[in-house]
């Protein structure tokens, strides 16, 4: 079989399965919309960094985590699961309603958090400024 036909079949096969998962409801995202749930998720993700509080945002995509040692963590949705990182040596960029957080971590390089409410975005920015290297 010619290579291009093989590649076409493989690409169609992968795209077909991914589309099937999508239409079967596989693109639903977890919502970080309850403080208790967020703290439980953080505890499961980063048990070495006990949390004392969480700052949520309305879309439920991400949450800032206040940690016992005074540092700050970020928990965010990875599809229907989550990932978490302590924000160390990260950089923040504000771009309209988007906050770009870039972490020096090859496995979690960039998280974009959209916050439409200016007041809440300001709270996030101020909180992040205390722990990040701001770059506007």
């Amino acid at each position: 079989m010619p290579l291009w036909i093989t590649l076409l079949i493989v690409a169609a096969g992968i795209a077909g399965i991914v589309a099937l998962v999508h239409f079967a409801g596989g693109s639903k995202r977890v919502r970080l919309d309850s403080r208790k749930r967020v703290l439980d998720m953080w505890q499961a993700e980063c048990p070495d960094h006990p949390a004392t509080g969480a700052l949520l945002e309305p879309s439920g995509f991400a949450a800032l985590i206040e940690l016992e040692d005074g540092s700050t963590g970020l928990l965010w949705a990875m599809g229907d699961r989550v990932a978490g990182r302590v924000l160390k040596d990260a950089v923040m960029q504000e771009d309209g309603t988007l906050l770009h957080i870039r972490i020096p971590d090859f496995t979690a390089p960039h998280i974009a958090v959209k916050i439409n409410d200016p007041a809440l975005r300001h709270i996030w920015v101020e909180r992040l400024k205390t722990v990040l290297n701001e770059r506007v």
Binding site: H22, A24, G26, S27, G79, R81
Partner: peptide
């Protein structure tokens, strides 16, 4: 398996980007 999980509502989960 994808259809089984969808129809039965149990037996695991698929996520689109994870599957890709």
């Amino acid at each position: 398996e994808i259809l089984w999980i969808r129809i039965k509502g149990r037996g695991g989960a698929y996520e689109t980007r994870d599957t890709a």
